[in-house]
Structures are given as structure tokens and as C-alpha cells.
Simulated assay, not measured.
Amino acid sequence: MYELIKVNDKTFYIDCPAKIGVYQAGENEVYLIDAGSDKDAGRKVRQILEKNEWTLKGILNTHSNADHIGGNAYLSRNTGCPVFTDGIEAAFTEHPILEPSFLYGGYPFKDLRHKFLMAQESETRGFDDPDYPKEVKVIPLPGHFFDMVGFRTPDDTVFLADCISSKETLDKYGISFIYDVEKHLETLDKVENMEAKFFVPAHAPAGERVKELAAYNRDKVYEAAEKIKNICAEPKNFEEILKRVFDEYNMQLTFEQYVLIGSTVRSYLAWMKDKGEMQAEINDNMLFWRK
């Protein structure tokens, strides 16, 4: 874990739970793509940088989920490097309470205010900032989160953030976190047709091909949608639907899974309602969903 792997002339990644990219911009200057989950991850990354005698010039964040920005604060504080992100992701990075608040749908109780869902805050700059390395191309990859992006380095390595999950993860859990199902499917179409020398997804094996895995991720989205529609053959309220989803996928409910999968199920319901495949109705002061 936290092994530095070289994939092209100037591009590396650090193998860890959410892969961290390293782009070598000069002989001794590098940029990170994401920063790990917390200060401990940041400390391990810093040790790798020092071992290679690299100066950290900046952190490029793909999106603001805590496992990708948790190392920002430690690394920027100890190296003075800027953090680059944009749009809604910048707001979540500067105000991390937004992530558990968004997922819960209100002020999150204490069990949700921890590093898994809420990173330390860090100041950010936009991708249009003069100090952003313009040779690293920003690739919009919305769906999993609001304004998630990937990056293409000059030696044609593409970092895909969280837009695809590994086959093993999908087979184990069946349903993965998605904010906007329609945008997520559009992103999977884009990735399936993308060309590059090498691909580095954050939570799937890195390699030269990604087409088949993108298609498998799409299949799992439609499979989850069908399960939810079948659950709603008769009118059900949200809590009933969520319980059935957990039962169908043999998952155990926890506070974290309640907000992550709960938010995802709401996104599926909204997507299918907008397509005319799901109805929402209020009866006796309760909201019910029906196929």
C-alpha cells in the first residue's frame, strides 16, 4: 500500500484506497491528482515526495469526497502548495460540512461528522488560476458527484476519479454511490469511447483498457434501476424502499450506508420519475413511490 508506480514518462500513481496521481512537471517538481483520505495519507505521500526529492507544486482535486481531499490540509500546510478545484467541488472542499449535510439532508448528527464523510477544510483556486499547470487537461466527468473531473497528463495518462468502480466492488455491493444518474450514464458513455495510453481509475485497476469495465458499470446502473422499480410495484415510502434495497443486495445498514445508499436511491427515484417510469404521490401526509 502507498507504492509509487510509474506508468508513463512523466506520470505515476500511488497505489492506495483512492489512487493518487503524480505528474512530474519538471525535474524536481510534481503535482498531485487528489491527496488521499486524511492527514495520515498526506504524511505517507509526503514521505514519497521527500524520498524522490520532489517539490510539491500543487494538488489537483477530481472532486470533493473526503477520501480524495482529506490529505489536502496536511500537504498544503506543510508544503505551502495550492489546491486546485472548481465549481461546487470548491465549495465542498472549503466547507466540508456540506458533504455530510447534503447526504443526510439536514444538519448531520455526530456519527456522520467524521473523516470518512467530512475532510478538513482547505483553501482552493480554480482551474483558470495562472498557477494551474495548463498542460494537464481537465476532463468533465459529472454524475458520481456534482462537478467531478478527470485529468489527462501530457504523456496521455487519464485519471478517471470515481466514474467507474471495479468489477469486484460492483459484484460485492451491487449498487454504488451516484449523485446524478443521467449524467453518470453520459460519463460512462464518454469513458467507454475514450482513447489514452493508460487509465487510472481511483477505485478500479489501472491499465490500458477501460471500455469493458465502463460497460459493466452501466449494466449495474440499469440492474439497480430495475430492482428499485420492482420494489415499487406497489406504492412504498422511502424507508421501505431503502430497506428492500439493502435486503436485495445483502448489505448491512449503518449510519454511513444509510446516507450514501439512501442518497443514491433518491437519485434513482428522481431520475426514473423525470423519465416517466416512476410516480410519486402523497397520501395521508406520506410520500409514496410507485412504478
Score class of each variant (00 low, 15 high):
residue 137 K to Q: 14
residue 62 T to I: 00
residue 197 K to Q: 04
residue 238 F to Y: 08
residue 43 R to E: 11
residue 224 A to P: 04
residue 66 A to W: 05
residue 260 L to A: 01
residue 162 D to F: 04
residue 54 W to C: 01
residue 39 K to A: 11
residue 57 K to W: 04
residue 34 D to T: 15
residue 3 E to I: 05
residue 244 R to K: 10
residue 161 A to M: 06
residue 72 N to H: 08
residue 131 D to C: 00
residue 225 A to M: 15
residue 265 V to D: 02
residue 19 K to M: 13
residue 216 Y to L: 08
residue 112 L to I: 00
residue 181 V to T: 12
residue 266 R to D: 09
residue 53 E to A: 15
residue 186 E to R: 13
residue 218 R to T: 07
residue 278 M to L: 11
residue 128 D to W: 01
residue 138 V to C: 04
residue 273 K to M: 02
residue 1 M to G: 14
residue 234 E to I: 10
residue 289 W to Q: 05
residue 10 K to L: 13
residue 171 D to R: 13
residue 137 K to G: 06
residue 75 L to F: 06
residue 2 Y to L: 05
residue 240 E to Q: 10
residue 256 E to Q: 06
residue 88 I to P: 00
residue 41 A to M: 07
residue 115 K to D: 13
residue 64 S to H: 10
residue 237 N to V: 09
residue 92 F to A: 09
residue 98 L to Y: 08
residue 5 I to E: 04
residue 270 A to M: 08
residue 106 G to P: 03
residue 251 M to N: 11
residue 60 L to Q: 03
residue 291 K to F: 10
residue 187 T to V: 03
residue 208 E to N: 12
residue 94 E to L: 05
residue 140 P to Q: 05
residue 251 M to E: 14
residue 64 S to R: 03
residue 287 L to G: 11
residue 148 M to N: 07
residue 112 L to Q: 00
residue 45 V to N: 04
residue 24 Q to I: 14
residue 267 S to L: 10
residue 174 G to I: 09
residue 149 V to N: 05
residue 122 S to E: 12
residue 133 P to E: 02
